[in-house]
């Protein structure tokens, strides 16, 4: 009975041997792939996603706050509650019709923009899609939330930060937040950190201050925390 029976079961294990070690190798490969994915996701992805831009003019906020006393000189509320936002040449030329100093950035501004009657195309860190009705007056005047709570301590900076543009959406990285994880300090916590003492508006925020992100969840969390409403009505923001 030595004749091999092609249908005999004993032949099978011999065939399996050819694949011995495949499972551990597969598992190993899966782990490597997972690791690579993690690397791509956490390291490469954010680098690819954002394009870095320098602002057209390196504006010195600290100097202007120092000269003008507060933010209101340039970012003011109208009587009707409207907010002026980022000033245009109209406001800048109240002082800078011509250069008043020797700073190359100021000279660049005057020569490239004022004389040519062009508006500066600022990269706006806080620009968002116009999906909601947002009133600065309601938040800052009514809710007494400081500017830094949402915009960070911009007002004390001597140089403008680089602007990271999301290549897909075209908006700033600040909206999602600097950390790609999207995990951030809650806005009201940031507010508390930013203003711990009486002289709150006179000093830059401490080192452990992190800028909150500006997504809908952040709005909702803050409304929940500060207004004590369980669930904000959609129409409050989406008119």
């Amino acid at each position: 009975m030595s004749q091999a029976d092609p249908n005999h079961k004993d032949h099978q294990p011999a065939a399996d041997n050819r694949y011995a070690g495949l499972l551990p190798l597969t598992l190993f490969l899966a782990c490597v792939a997972a690791y690579v994915s993690l690397l791509i996701g956490w390291e490469l992805f954010p680098r690819l996603l954002y394009a870095k831009h320098e602002q057209p003019i390196d504006f010195n906020h600290a100097l202007h706050v120092d000269q003008l006393g507060d933010c209101e000189g340039c970012h003011w509320f109208r009587e009707d509650g409207g907010f002026s936002g980022i000033p245009g040449n109209f406001t800048c030329t109240e002082c800078h019709m011509d250069a008043i100093g020797y700073d190359p950035e100021e000279i660049k501004f005057v020569e490239q923009y004022v004389y040519k009657d062009r508006e500066v195309d600022w990269y706006v860190y806080s620009r968002q899609p116009d999906c909601v009705f947002f009133s600065h007056a309601a938040h800052v005047l009514g809710g007494e939330i400081s500017c830094e709570t949402c915009h960070g301590d911009h007002g004390y900076s001597e140089h403008l930060r680089p602007y990271y543009e999301n290549r897909i959406t075209g908006y700033s990285r600040d909206i999602w937040g600097e950390k790609i994880s999207g995990i951030h300090q809650a806005p009201w916590e940031a507010d508390a950190v930013a203003h711990t003492d009486e002289e709150e508006y006179e000093q830059p925020a401490p080192a452990d201050f992190t800028m909150p992100s500006m997504k809908m969840d952040d709005c909702a969390a803050c409304h929940y925390q500060m207004k004590g409403v369980k669930r904000e009505g959609c129409f409050v923001c989406h008119k």
Binding site: L25, T26, L27, L29, A30, C31, V32, A33, A34, Y35, V36, S37, L38, I40, G41, W42, F45, I180, S181, G182
Partner: peptide, 15 residues
Amino acid sequence: GAVAGGAVGINFTPV
């Protein structure tokens, strides 16, 4: 195996 590993891995990233 590699695809599955990569797929699982990517879900633990923000991508």
